[in-house]
């Protein structure tokens, strides 16, 4: 179940929208944060607080690729491998993540510290290659820079 604060947060989100269903997307984000991923419990919590049938909540969530539909590591690396990033070496960086961290696309490190998701352009083509770790942007990546960045996350 959600804690009091999270329930309040959901209710606040709800109050900003004309109908409960329109509040689903931000509400699902809150539940995802609280449960770590979009488990059945997460959707049930959203459904309960917003008063939206749970299958509807799940249907909306399931449409979007950017939610976590599977259990994931504590930190999510979203690495771009689209054209600009690819030309500037993104695939090499992916290999680096694999050899040094054991991270394959879609996978999670054994210690649960990182998960890796491959993205199609995150709008940083001018400063490629680029990635997101959780909500933060990192550009002009190199192997060494990646190592420095990831050291900050536990």
């Amino acid at each position: 179940m959600l804690n009091e604060t999270a329930i309040k947060e959901l209710q606040e989100i709800r109050s900003k929208y004309p109908s409960a269903r329109s509040a689903l997307l931000p509400a699902i984000y809150v539940a995802q944060r609280e449960f770590g991923w979009l488990s059945e419990e997460a959707y049930e919590a959203v459904s309960e607080v917003l008063g939206v049938p749970k299958a509807i909540a799940r249907g909306v969530g399931a449409f979007y690729a950017m939610y976590k539909h599977r259990p994931m590591g504590r930190n999510i690396i979203q690495l771009c491998t689209n054209v600009s990033c690819m030309i500037l070496g993104a695939e090499r960086l992916a290999d680096y993540l694999k050899s040094h961290y054991g991270l394959v696309p879609g996978g999670t490190t054994e210690d649960g510290r990182f998960s890796l998701v491959i993205m199609e352009c995150i709008g940083a083509c001018g400063t490629a290659p680029a990635m997101l770790v959780n909500d933060e942007f990192y550009e002009n990546l190199s192997e060494q820079y990646i190592e420095e960045i990831l050291a900050k996350f536990t």
């Binding site: 059945e40 959707y43 049938p53 749970k54 299958a55 509807i56 399931a62 449409f63």
Partner: peptide, 25 residues
């Protein structure tokens, strides 16, 4: 299920070529 029965027990899950119908569980 949603508009007539009012049970809203099933929904389209995922999208594009992966779209399919599923109950909540």
């Amino acid at each position: 299920c949603e508009g007539v029965q009012g049970a809203s027990a099933i929904a389209v899950m995922e999208r594009g070529g992966h779209s399919h119908i599923e109950p909540f569980s």
